[in-house]
Design a protein around this nucleic acid. Sequence first.
DNA 1: CCACAAGATGGTATCGCTAACAGCTCACTC
DNA 2: GAGTGAGCTGTTAGCGATACCATCTTGTGG
Lengths: 344, 344
Amino acid sequence: MTKVRPGQSPAERPKAAVMEDVAELAGVSAMTVSRVLNAPEKVRPETRARVLAAVRELDYRPNSAARVLVTGRSGVLGVVCFDTTLYGPASTLFGIEQAARNSDYLISIASLPTLNRDWISRGIDRLRSQSVDGVIVVAPHESAAEGLRDLPAGLPVVAVGGGEDLAVPVAAVDQHAGAARATRHLLSLGHSTVWHVSGPPNWIDASGRVAGWRSALEAEGRQVPEPLVGDWTAHSGYEIGKRLARDPEVTAVFVANDHMAMGVLRALREAGRRVPEDVSVVGFDDVPEAAYFWPPLTTVRQNFGEVGRQAFRLLLDRMAGVEDEARRMVEPELVVRESTGVRP
Amino acid sequence: MTKVRPGQSPAERPKAAVMEDVAELAGVSAMTVSRVLNAPEKVRPETRARVLAAVRELDYRPNSAARVLVTGRSGVLGVVCFDTTLYGPASTLFGIEQAARNSDYLISIASLPTLNRDWISRGIDRLRSQSVDGVIVVAPHESAAEGLRDLPAGLPVVAVGGGEDLAVPVAAVDQHAGAARATRHLLSLGHSTVWHVSGPPNWIDASGRVAGWRSALEAEGRQVPEPLVGDWTAHSGYEIGKRLARDPEVTAVFVANDHMAMGVLRALREAGRRVPEDVSVVGFDDVPEAAYFWPPLTTVRQNFGEVGRQAFRLLLDRMAGVEDEARRMVEPELVVRESTGVRP
DNA sequence: CCACAAGATGGTATCGCTAACAGCTCACTC
DNA sequence: GAGTGAGCTGTTAGCGATACCATCTTGTGG
């Protein structure tokens, strides 16, 4: 490989080899080179070997722009996403990446500064202009529904973690089931009802968890307290936790994610309420460090890797022309640790 | 926008408009349309308006593959990265995304299953074949140095968080300074020396923190205990913490990241050693929830957003042909909370 | 009122690749 | 031994944009 140093004249810089160069060196036509790369079985083994030798010799890489121009397919998938520092989105993205890599797709990312209809459309447009073969929208927010209403024709799109009303296939963790499971776990420990610290309204996951919690309570005819609304941060959990700690009625809390749960735990402890002796707490996500919270957090594990894989699958189907209105739900799993105990 | 339904024949699907269509509708040549899009000031305002109207009418998007083919520039930057669920890499990626979006670049991601020389080269190759304009390698690992040794000529590459010996420009947080600061903070509280829980060997950040810690101790002539090696997880911090808790000599611990610090805190507490009364603990990263650890964690904040921005800048320079061997260091900041106190 | 420059627009070639078809070689059949 | 077809390779024609240069306006000074 040749390094270009500042002093070197442009003429000396070897221009990257193109297919024609390979063809010449191998003594064949460009078409044959193309075939060796795309349908090797159609070329006689000896010819193929000569071509491959030439490819290596010249360190040839096909120019994907040229290929895209003629085939219309790029081998790149677009992902539209919001804050990738949040645990959920980051993990989902990671799952998608892995699935894509295994199938030799590359991922292009359009990350949004704000989560709303307009930016989602814009993100999709930017990806589309890059000729991505398909788009996965990771936007677990109400606005996604609108942003996904008028899609460019012919562009396969799937969503991750979207609501029921999306016009596109969806892969998601079953938030309702997870929340219900967490709630039933607390009820089964003898608590008469369960308080809820929710995520921000308009987030699909947040409302799904509220719904699951509510229906589990209603199914057993329990009183349903007003949910307390946080913003996913430990800080908001802490502030809400302080309020909960003041109310002696509160013996069981289902918190919509682990980081807020961490804030709640801290507030309870500061108020002198012991967990789980006085109050039981369940989180959601199972972040890797949840087992090292104080006390170790009972929580609901989401398999983000699986969700990413399912989304990728769905997109592949769509790209292949399969038009099923699929909704792939991934089951979450309750992980019982030490932050939950029997009613005092 | 037209939706294509299953029943529709291919003939009915409107093919996306191309430049020629716009030209025709506006009554100009394709060349003029191209100019309106790329150098509007060279076109008379009335003509420009006509063209833009036609663009809107046909919902025209330039085909980037065609443009790349002729210009050689794609408006896409490649990012090679490893585990994007870790807080550091995820935040760096986020910083790069933001910087890129502000300058209308799109990001393509090649994530690696394993961090070694071979995969790094492969990642760069895959991106290169997509005609990215430049590559940012987020691979704070020794192997990056080798992977970045033989780069394809003419492809601008910069690294984030690399070691001193990289052949490319680097943007990074000054790990050495951060670790030294944390260590001096502990010494200033009267501790006779400071133990260290490090990250995995071969990680640049890990060795930088070890070096900073060691040099701060040596500068004051203190005894330098053998560092204890973790793997960034809370679990490893917990296991190491149990060992530290047994040694009554240990009164101050500098832990190489916040998640391991969380494990250490837990182990100390379980062993009956109070923080900060008996043992002081400092972390590294300042993850958003660090203020809600028990006790709130004193730690070293890394400004990942700034690192991403610097890396992007550096890459832009390289792409413009500026060949300075720059190393942009971002200063970390010590955030003192309640996990550190005077020597017992 | 003409020469001339500056500004606006158009024509043509080209980027690197592959689809579609054409042509050649050779083995095998009847 | 010519016909047949299978298997391999080559030729041609774009894909959709921009670079480069030519051409046609328009404005300006003498």
